[in-house]
């Protein structure tokens, strides 16, 4: 494997390790705060009821928004570096970007798409909360729509991204 590809894989590994570490920090902080990531029988019982009890969804969306935001930013930093190789040498750029056509990278890209979709749509939901003065129930319905759109668009886009590797 060319050195530039090894270097990229090392960078990507660092990005993924950073994301896992950041997620651990977010969840550890969440464990100390109210609500917290406690999936207990009491939580599940409350969650089974409609209404305000399901507002806990917003808390989990907050955690996920932070984690996906960090993941996107961390990969963006790496991506700026990898596209910058074109300035050094177009051949080096092509060699490095050959990696993007491999099956593992395509799976990673599909995951990145899901992260971008959730972060974007949830960000728009938060803007809409202010603009449209959305209360707790309206915001929860919007969040369900965000989750559904993320799954549908992520599955469709992910299939398009991953399919060539298995064709």
């Amino acid at each position: 494997m060319p050195a530039i590809q090894l270097l990229f894989i090392a960078g990507l590994t660092a990005v993924l390790a950073g994301v896992v570490g950041f997620a651990a920090v977010v969840l550890a902080s969440a464990a100390r705060s109210g609500g917290g990531p406690h999936v207990t029988s009491g939580f599940l019982r409350r969650f089974a009821r409609p209404g305000r009890e399901r507002a806990e969804l917003h808390r989990w969306a907050f955690y996920l928004h932070r984690i996906t935001g960090f993941a996107i930013f961390a990969f963006l930093c790496l991506h700026i570096l990898d596209v910058s190789t074109y300035a050094l040498s177009p051949a080096l750029y092509d060699e490095l970007h050959g990696l993007y056509a491999t099956a593992p990278m395509r799976v990673f890209e599909a995951g990145l798409l899901v992260a971008i979709l959730f972060h974007t749509l949830n960000g728009l939901r938060l803007v809409a909360v202010d603009v449209a003065d959305m209360g707790i129930d309206a915001s929860r319905r919007a969040l369900v729509a965000v989750a559904a759109l993320t799954v549908v668009l992520g599955a469709a886009g992910g299939a398009v991204i991953v399919a060539p590797a298995f064709a």
């Binding site: 109210g34 609500g35 305000r52 009890e53 507002a55 806990e56 917003h58 808390r59 907050f62 938060l126 909360v129 209360g135 707790i136 915001s139 929860r140």
Partner: peptide
Amino acid sequence: CRYIYGCSAV
């Protein structure tokens, strides 16, 4: 505020 809505829920 990050609109977690924990306040209004509890």
